[in-house]
Design a binder for these strands. Structure first.
Lengths: 227, 227
DNA sequence: TAGATTGTTAATCGATTAACAATC
DNA sequence: TAGATTGTTAATCGATTAACAATC
């Protein structure tokens, strides 16, 4: 049997993990999946770094926050590192997710297969439009917003996606939090204010394009707006 | 007539603008629009900072990269600063955008009103599905992928959105770049490799959820995954 | 004038990188 | 063994914050 790499619990460690590190962890995971699919059994910090435009030192340092996953002289075993990173990110188990707002974008997200691959399952959607409530899209039942608290509580849903118009977003987020949600992805182009016990990620599609128009107009005068 | 604030061209200035600064610029702009809508004529660095969770010093420093937009003792005039930031970001003019891939997500993005508000116009969409080509969604004509080079060249499109499956994304991005596109938003969950003269922003929906699951699992041990 | 707030410099903080002993 | 590569420490780099003279 093969010796397992050591991991440390985060609480052992020295201060909080920078957000940028966790972000790169997701990128490593994505790249590792691809490597494995392409037939690589192992990789190295410099290999992984080259693929993503990072230094080898950064890759090693990032991973070292969480344990000793590599083998000196060898590198990292892809499958093993995938398992480790998934455990770190918490995606080694299934996360039920609530989505609020079943407009254009909401419906598209309900059909997005990428969530499932990382163990996220949208199990309930909410809207106020009577024409939508009661329906089921992609197998996901659509409830009236009034049922949010009940459904989220009952299913112990910890993650929510806010896909409503900007004016409704804060109210919806408050409802999610009150019902027990601890992490929110906000697709509405507004700044949400939530208790600091709740994690918040904002995706503003127009903002992404703004970053590009800036870079195009100021071509050369800025560091590349890499992924 | 009111005296106009001074702006400097970026080329004057001292080294490249950090990507994080440009990102915050978009957030300032969003907040300024809201303030103006709420009837505020002026604001201040500490006001703006409080709304977004930044220090006043950071707000002033960010803006100072680009010019002198404030008035000592007064603050910033909202409308004036909005105009300035839009000029800096390049969104004071209209940007035609090409979208490739008209699946679930692509169609939703075609209907998203937020782009138009920031002067982005999706003027052409592309797909390989004969069932979709020729159709028009939200007033946007859908061409066959084979027409991409021609249409992008002819309309001098500089920005593109890649909304195809992961396996097709690199090829599509290459085509966009070959046709003259200088900025790409990639919605496919893969790392794209493009010439460094091209700006690239990646939006990976599953990755956003991963950041949240990490934060929830490690509650307390990480800086909050703020917007 | 007193109070408010800017733009900017210097100090602090944190994150990235280089270097290297330890390991396979 | 020689070659490769890790994990970690120290050095470097860059970004954030504090402080304050200048301005309205």
């Amino acid at each position: 049997m093969m010796s397992q790499p050591k991991s440390k619990t985060l609480s052992d460690s020295e201060g909080p993990v920078p957000k940028a590190v966790v972000n790169r962890l997701s990128l490593y995971l994505r790249e590792l999946h691809r490597l494995l699919r392409d037939g690589h059994q192992t990789t190295s910090s410099s290999h992984l770094g080259n693929l993503l435009g990072f230094t080898d030192a950064q890759v090693r340092k990032d991973l070292a926050y969480f344990g000793h996953f590599g083998y000196p002289g060898i590198g990292y075993r892809c499958q093993e590192l995938i398992d480790a990173v998934r455990r770190i990110l918490g995606t080694d188990r299934i996360w039920p997710v609530a989505m609020v707002g079943v407009g254009n974008l909401g419906r598209a997200l309900l059909g997005y297969k990428g969530f499932g691959l990382q163990n996220f399952r949208i199990v309930a959607a909410f809207d106020v439009d009577p024409g939508r409530v009661g329906e089921s899209i992609e197998g996901v039942p659509i409830y009236h917003l009034d049922k949010l608290t009940e459904v989220v509580r009952q299913q112990r849903i910890k993650l929510g996606m806010v896909v409503v118009p900007a004016t409704a977003a804060q109210g919806v987020a408050d409802k999610l939090v009150a019902a027990g949600v601890e992490g929110v992805v906000n697709f509405a182009p507004v700044t949400l204010v939530l208790p600091e016990t709740v994690s918040l990620v904002g995706v503003d599609l127009a903002m992404e394009l703004e970053q590009l128009s800036f870079a195009v107009v100021n071509r050369g005068e800025t560091g590349s707006a890499d992924e």
